[in-house]
Design a protein around this nucleic acid. Structure first.
Lengths: 353, 353
DNA sequence: CTGAAAGCGCTAACAG
DNA sequence: CTGTTAGCGCTTTCAG
């Protein structure tokens, strides 16, 4: 039994660093060093500490470490409705990171603000947070980004093309992804491929399209103007775009949509026109959101590891914040691997009669 | 200028409670009381403190308060794939609560575990968290619940029927919601209404169905057996159920699905059969998830305030945890108001020829 | 490479 | 109703 500490306050249940230290026969400080693995600790010591940690099933109290390290870092995650599709994964990612690093998360919702309102909101945030995560489409807002940069608050953009060299970025290679999607279709024999573009003001959209173009080009295929439509990433826009694509006299045998929502819309349009997917029309999406699996057939699409991208974003922010005092601004452009998820919405084209 | 405190450590930038206290001319303790508005504080004093807070734009350091209050509470949010639809809102809610109360969130993912695996996972969690939030369908898992109760860890179930009187619950009134949905249809003249049930092992599903039944009964309508189908909340199941409903010789003029995914599936089936929604068939969903707006027409559905339910859940947990030492277990059954969201998927039925 | 002391910002407990 | 005191669990600083 441990001798009752002279504690006046109630002692909470959890096991503390002191108990670990006691069991390992070292000072709490050494335990701390082992846990954060920083500083030099002899291997043997480290081993003993680790053992004690496991023995006691010790979990550090993040509140305490955060307080002691004066790392009481507040990070804002700003979202808007349009980015809703990512939101769930994004939140999972930041939560994971938060419970690992004890940053304080501030989740803010900007509802379709104009540039002036964004500037104002950004200015307000600058005062209460130490870093900002900007998912699309906000990461492309010059107004917001400029304001944060001016306020000296590090920003990490997620899943976007690199907008400016003043902020960091975690993203996939949209160009390659778009290209792979097209190649996937071309390999299966498609030669007339329709493309529904995303919001033209977003960098990532352009890159996806460029990738598509590159694939066609490499395969020696023509890019027919009438096979490219614009959409703004909404289901409704996908409906209209698909309608235009399919009412053409010589319709495409496959459609690439710049996100899953628009791809789902394309399937819906195809069905209403009596087309079978994928027999009469192949459709692929982008993002692998829940929309990809709440249609029939389920969508072949590009998967982005959003959760771990969010996680990475927080890491980058933390580093930037720490270094901020050291004058040098830390900027990173972090590209993570994406994946092609094949489901049931692609088949070889029917032989043309 | 303030006399340089004897601080050895670097002082972080943020404004602290002491500065507020100084400016307001009171002790930090009083500021603390005002902020958490607990304890009696004279109105004049409170006013002065509030003023100072605003003046300095003070934001409490949650890490510190959490540490001091020994509220270093870890709360687990466990989710499974099927509950994915809620997840986004759920996460927003818990994040909001977390940044308000500085609880440490532990997000855990249980992938289709069997009873034994659930028991084991629960046992493990008991040791590292002080409370658990259980969204559907996990909240109906007797195995998991029993294990947490045994471990003395308070549990709050979200959005489910009350399973046991050993755990707390935050939910909407599923019975009334189901009834309102049916009444909405009946008022518009529908007399043959199909119903796609949810997972029969979930309490909430049964209540929604009972509400439907009650509405029909009150309106003096028959419940035709062939107009009730089972589904498991997936899009695929909705497809099959709607197919059965519509292939009947005397098909319904409206379909109530127990969630949005299945309602979206019903629309898809209707379209493929050449039916116009809502002219030939009205369809309503349940939950107001993103699926409700990524179909055309957009779904009339029941909205649950998931985010604030999650928020409430954390409050309840916090109270339970605090009182836990006081022997008496705190149990609540908290019912929050839902709403009927009318969109474009409902119309009056066509006159029968 | 390791330890001792001091204190991060806040609040529980107990006086006034 | 308000202030004083001590200490939450961890880490920084500085000295072995």
């Amino acid at each position: 039994m441990n001798k009752p500490k002279k504690s006046i306050r109630r002692k909470s249940s959890g096991v503390t660093i002191d108990e670990v230290a006691a069991l390992a026969g070292v000072s709490p400080m050494t335990v701390s060093r082992v846990i954060n693995n920083q500083g030099k600790v002899r291997d043997a010591t480290r081993e003993r500490v680790m053992h004690a940690v496991r023995e006691l099933d010790y979990t550090p109290n993040l509140a305490a470490s955060s307080l002691a390290a004066a790392q009481h870092t507040r990070i804002a995650l700003i979202y808007t409705n349009p980015s809703g599709a990512y939101l769930r994964e994004l939140l999972l990612g930041v939560l994971r990171a938060a419970s690992r690093t004890a940053v304080q998360l501030v989740v803010d919702y900007w509802d379709e603000l104009d540039a002036e309102a964004e500037r104002k909101a950004a200015r307000g945030l600058c005062k209460r947070v130490d870093g900002v995560i900007l998912p699309p489409p906000l990461c492309e807002s010059r107004a917001a980004v400029a304001e944060f940069v001016k306020g000296g608050v590090p920003v990490v953009a997620i899943a976007s093309g690199r907008l400016s060299d003043e902020i960091s970025c975690v993203r996939i290679d949209d160009f390659r992804a778009g290209k792979e999607l097209a190649e996937h279709l071309i390999q299966r024999g498609h030669a007339r491929i329709g493309f529904i573009r995303g919001r033209t003001d977003l960098n990532a959209s352009a890159r996806r399209y460029d990738g598509f173009l590159a694939a066609l080009h490499e395969a020696g295929l023509e890019v027919a103007d009438e096979l490219v439509q614009d959409g703004d990433y909404t289901y409704r826009a996908g409906l209209a775009a698909a309608e235009k694509l399919l009412e053409h006299g010589d319709p495409p045998t496959a459609i690439i949509a710049s996100n899953d929502d628009m791809a789902a819309a394309a399937i819906s349009v195809a069905h209403r026109r009596g087309l079978d997917v994928p027999r009469d029309l192949s459709v692929v999406g982008f993002d692998d959101t829940s929309a990809a699996t709440t249609v029939w057939p389920e969508l072949t699409t590009i998967h982005q590891p959003i959760a771990s991208m969010a996680d990475t974003a927080i890491d980058i922010l933390l580093r930037s914040i720490k270094r901020r005092s050291d004058s040098a601004r830390v900027l990173m452009d972090h590209v993570v691997p994406h994946g092609l998820v094949t489901r049931d919405s692609v088949a070889a084209p029917l032989k043309r009669k």
